[in-house]
Design a protein around this nucleic acid. Structure first.
Lengths: 205, 205
DNA sequence: GAACTTAACTTAACACTGTTAAGTAACGGA
DNA sequence: TCCGTTACTTAACAGTGTTAAGTTAAGTTC
């Protein structure tokens, strides 16, 4: 169906090129350090060309984050195959920390930087395939349902948010303070393992 | 002793004015949103005048952070009067979260933003009066010494860093995600209490 | 008391940022 | 062939942190 579709495809292609260049630069140097002009240089366009594909720099970031959120959710759902729900919980926590360790700059933008609230229209939560928090909640709910947690723990959100905060604390503190010679840091894997283990010990029956 | 000291005093005075203006603006609007020119406007000086008192914008931030670190340590040490070491640990965790809640913008700069490593010369750690981490370590050490923790837990740093990461996770996630309508957040006090309680239950004998 | 030095500034400017306005060249459809 | 749309470019704007050069007042020295 002719040139109309070809142009659509070309447009999509350069959009992708912009995203790729931005992802690479953001990931290696951080959002603030990267300029529109440098992104444009990478793909041999002028800086203003980007504005024909994205509203502004934040829109670029937002799109990348959405992709990363989905990727995180996908990596976590791999833990769903474990038979024991408490094992699932532990493995999910460790996988979460690993994600942060692997993509620290993405993690910073996703979870350590305040964002404007999401437009209620385009909120599409609850699908564990795309929503890591929904996945976590499902595991916690399963732990409660099968009687693995202390009987007074019935608030799925409270338990989920605390597990999340725990692993977030480990990786976020590491990202912000890894080259801080004030504290003699234990190896990250040790801290990750001990955090998940301690939280789980604190909630299981 | 004459005009020399008066000038020294005057210099100190405007230095303080700059710091006060910067603190107020940083705290209410965040570091990046505040410009040197606006700080200068507040105290009715030109922007360049600031550079006679501080090397650059980062130096301003660094000095403010140092002050805040000391204030945090001071607030935490108030918990030292509690008789029971485990109670101390719990109260310290809650006080830490309260500090973050009270000064979220300071907290962001202190603990959620990567900083260049501290110059080894001017590192002055270990004094619990000024060093919150040293204070935490002392409490954990006391818990271990008095046999309140599980016997296999002998690494003071690992336990301290995990307690820290836990409360950091609660407040850091709240600061970054408080206006995120994706997740239905439990009240912060609930999350704070449950985190400290769960971690403590996970480490006590 | 006049001349000189120094400290504490101010104004002007630089190199950069994200972003927008105005202009241009190529292409598809009538 | 003309026209309008699309996809861009160059030039420019307002704003940033920071520096260079000029100014003014005070203190010091002869």
């Amino acid at each position: 169906m002719g040139p109309k579709e070809r142009r659509e495809r070309e447009r999509e292609e350069i959009r992708g090129k912009i995203l790729d260049a931005a992802r690479e630069l953001f990931a290696s140097e951080g959002y603030e350090a990267v300029t529109m002009r440098r992104i444009a240089d990478r793909i041999e366009y002028s800086a203003t060309a980007i504005y024909f594909h994205f509203k502004d720099k934040d829109a670029l970031l937002k799109e990348l984050c959405e992709h990363d959120f989905a990727q995180l959710a996908q990596q976590l759902t791999a833990m769903d195959q474990l038979p024991d729900p408490v094992d699932k919980l532990r493995a999910t926590g460790l996988a979460y920390i690993q994600f942060g360790l692997e993509y620290p700059n993405h993690y910073r933008l996703m979870f350590m930087t305040p964002h404007p609230p999401v437009d209620p229209d385009e909120i599409r939560k609850g699908n564990p395939e795309e929503d890591a928090y929904a996945f976590l909640k499902e595991i916690v709910a399963e732990c409660i349902r099968t009687g693995r947690l202390r009987p007074e723990l019935q608030d799925v959100d409270l338990v989920s948010q605390t597990m999340w905060a725990g692993v977030h604390g480990v990786i976020a503190l590491d990202i912000a303070k890894c080259n801080d010679n004030w504290v003699e840091w234990c190896p990250l894997e040790e801290r990750a393992a001990f955090m998940t283990e301690t939280l789980i010990r604190g909630i299981v029956r």
